[in-house]
Design a protein around this nucleic acid. Structure first.
Lengths: 233, 233
DNA sequence: GAAGGCATACTAGTATACAAGTAGCCAAAT
DNA sequence: ATTTGGCTACTTGTATACTAGTATGCCTTC
């Protein structure tokens, strides 16, 4: 019989391989693990001090997100960045966030406004300190916050799942080049419109902001050609 | 070393538990397996004639999609329909499909038009024959086709993954009530706008169409209360 | 010398054995 | 009669053993 307590009991899930998942995801995202690199289950299991079973589940999930490629009886490899997937991710993200930010501009409360201002200040600090990794996370936090303000917190989970490939490009673009100042500026504009309750302006700013990545993709895929999938001959 | 052939070789993947996944998904969707029902790994494994290992991967994926709830050391149960998830699914689907159908109306070719007309005719046939299961699939096929015409075939995969909870309501609504005629009518209107290249009208029709589900949710959740998550007390 | 076949090492897929934790029942004590 | 304690059956989580298939390097042969 179904436990009626299921709704109110907080299950202490067993995220044994949870940190392994996060570590691998991060390492692939940041390029510590480079596309094409072999990551056998046995090696990961041994390194983490666990058996292959939980490792397999982690890899299966990473494969679903497009981070690794599993070839049966051959091996598991860090997947190359697929440009087509990047463009699809951008399309979906733009579509969803441009709609949610309109709602955010309309539903804004004073408490939300304070959170947004705090985040912007933190970004400025990371920028001046040159901490690109911190900035990367704060960028995500701002967008997540906007989605939450829109009253659709679950949407961010979907975006998070979809933008995996986009994130890899985003990370590379933060490493080299002078994009962070531009992004902070755009974020400030974005938040400004939201604070003013200007839904129309906020959407336009978001659209422009999310398309900034386009300006870097070509250069990134040229400089870091080995990170990207080879185009069909 | 990474096999360079990875891109062009077609890997004969080993979808051993693939049919089990489809069967379970279908059975939960159609209500053959009812929310709260216990589905132990061992039972499923024995029934399918395989070991627990592949069954676990299937269940893990179903859990990610919100079809089952896995409680460690307790059991695996068919998940109840979460109304909040249904509304989130609808929001995302509406946002994405309203944008893609605009593109579909603009990118339409003659071949696409023929496919759309064929699908509509098939729907009409299923309607008259009272085959609601076939209609369910044709409904999906039409929407998938529109997304493909828009030039974003990958988007449908995302929608497919998101609308799981929505589908359960959709299936229930097709079982009882006289909604199929309404939906076919809406599909015809939709396709009509696309065929006419009327992006504006197509989007409006799509929005109205995807919101039709709202009219049934309240009744469905009342009639089939045992399918839905109990609201917080 | 080159090309083809074969053996070996390594991989993920699968099956099975073991461990840890939960819920429900039953008995005993109050 | 009620409550509380423990015990048992059952579940998922994890580890390990085994299977099957692939790629590669070496050896043979032409």
């Amino acid at each position: 019989m179904p436990p009626v307590s299921a709704e109110l009991r907080l299950h202490r899930r067993a995220p044994i391989g949870r940190e392994l998942y996060g570590m691998l995801r991060r390492q692939i995202l940041t390029g510590v693990l480079r596309p094409g690199e072999s990551i056998p289950e046995a090696t990961l299991a041994e390194r983490a001090g666990v058996s292959r079973t939980p490792v397999r589940e982690v890899l299966r999930r990473l494969a679903d997100e497009g981070f690794v490629t599993i070839i049966p009886q051959v091996g598991t490899y860090v997947a190359p960045i697929r440009l087509a997937a990047v463009y699809d991710s951008q399309f979906i993200r733009e579509t969803l966030e441009c709609r949610t930010i309109r709602l955010a501009a309309e539903n804004l409360t004073e408490a939300d406004a304070a959170v947004l201002r705090t985040n912007l200040a933190a970004q400025q600090a990371s920028l001046e300190a040159g901490e690109s990794d911190a900035f990367f996370d704060q960028d995500d936090a701002l967008h997540a916050c906007l989605v939450r303000i829109a009253g659709r917190p679950a949407i961010w989970e979907v975006i998070q799942g979809v933008k995996s490939q986009l994130d890899r490009v985003r990370y590379l673009s933060l490493q080299s080049g002078d994009w962070p100042p531009v992004l902070v500026e755009e974020h400030a504009t974005l938040v400004g419109h939201v604070l003013a309750g200007d839904a129309e302006g906020a959407e336009a700013a978001m659209r422009a902001h999310l398309r900034t990545v386009f300006a870097t993709i070509e250069r990134i895929s040229r400089v870091n050609a080995d990170f990207f999938e080879k185009p069909a001959p």
